[in-house]
Design a protein around this nucleic acid. Structure first.
Lengths: 162, 162
DNA sequence: TCTTGACTAGTTATCTTATAACATATTCCT
DNA sequence: AGGAATATGTTATAAGATAACTAGTCAAGA
């Protein structure tokens, strides 16, 4: 459906995109013996509804409406589980979370955040990660985790105001 | 003194490092007609005291001790000024701020955050920025700003626990 | 000199984001 | 069934950030 996870900014069959990601996540969870419980699963579905990042409290509101707990830890714990197991990412720049578009694959995501429509795409970041490691090497720094995020305009939003 | 801004992890004459950065900032402010007022200057000095990122409230506490206002906007405004004019950077991953090691030069910083000692270095990021733009290009995304941050171990902290 | 406008600094109040700590329930294994 | 581990829920609070208003500063022009 979206093998590069880069279709966020292109028009696509989002219902299929969402269902595919969810099915994939379920398969990965099954394979790894992870418990994709109702709250966790629902949190992931909420993130998958759009190619945007959502704040923890946005997710919490949605969960609460549907009968889950309405206290912050409910959302934070579900999101933490999703992030920890690679089903979602945390977007530091936005204090927000987004569903992962490559669940199960080892990858370093590069987040492209549209400042006009709040759309979010996950570009392949292997090359960026490599050059980051090259920048860190001469200083003797050993990289463990990285956050690579860009803010700008997605294709659809470039027409409007330029 | 530290032409690459990468000495944070190396032993160096920090008093000179700090004074140099401050003098540089003053010169740039003078040249651009910016007002490096007492609060702003003091906030910068506080950031320059160590190669670590400080939270806005840490800076605020220090400012308040010295007779400046003790309400959050006092610190946030001073820090916002410093960031806006390139005297400091915001480290999203830490919800914190750090003095810029290349004031006045156009540059894309890559932040290297040591998870053991909280040290922070600013590596040159031109190559990383270029490959980020290359990753964004195929999606038609126009990059305006970017945050590139890595967490790991600095040279001094790699000996201890490996 | 006076005054006007831009900017700076301070305050109160509030909002948003995140976590600690503890109680209860569920699930898994033996 | 018993017990350990895991998951969910709650209360309370910590930590980070901003809106909106007031008042002081300073420089440029009438």
């Amino acid at each position: 459906m979206d093998p590069d996870g880069t279709l966020a900014f292109a028009s696509h069959d989002h219902a299929a995109c969402r269902d595919g990601a969810l099915a994939h996540a379920e398969a990965v969870a099954e394979a790894k013996g992870l418990r994709l419980t109702p709250v966790r699963r629902r949190a992931l579905e909420i993130l998958l509804e759009s190619h945007q990042a959502l704040g923890a409290y946005d997710v919490l509101d949605r969960l609460a409406e549907e009968g889950f707990g309405r206290q912050p830890p409910v959302a934070y714990r579900a999101l933490e589980f999703l992030v920890e197991h690679g089903f979602a990412h945390r977007i530091r720049r936005l204090n927000a979370f987004a569903a992962c578009m490559h669940p199960g694959e080892a990858h370093v995501p590069v987040f492209l955040i549209c400042s006009a429509c709040n759309g979010l795409a996950e570009a392949p970041g292997a090359a960026v990660a490599a050059s980051l490691r090259q920048a860190a090497g001469p200083l003797g720094f050993r990289v463990e985790r990285m956050s690579i995020e860009a803010v700008g305009l997605c294709p659809a939003c470039q027409g409007g105001s330029e």
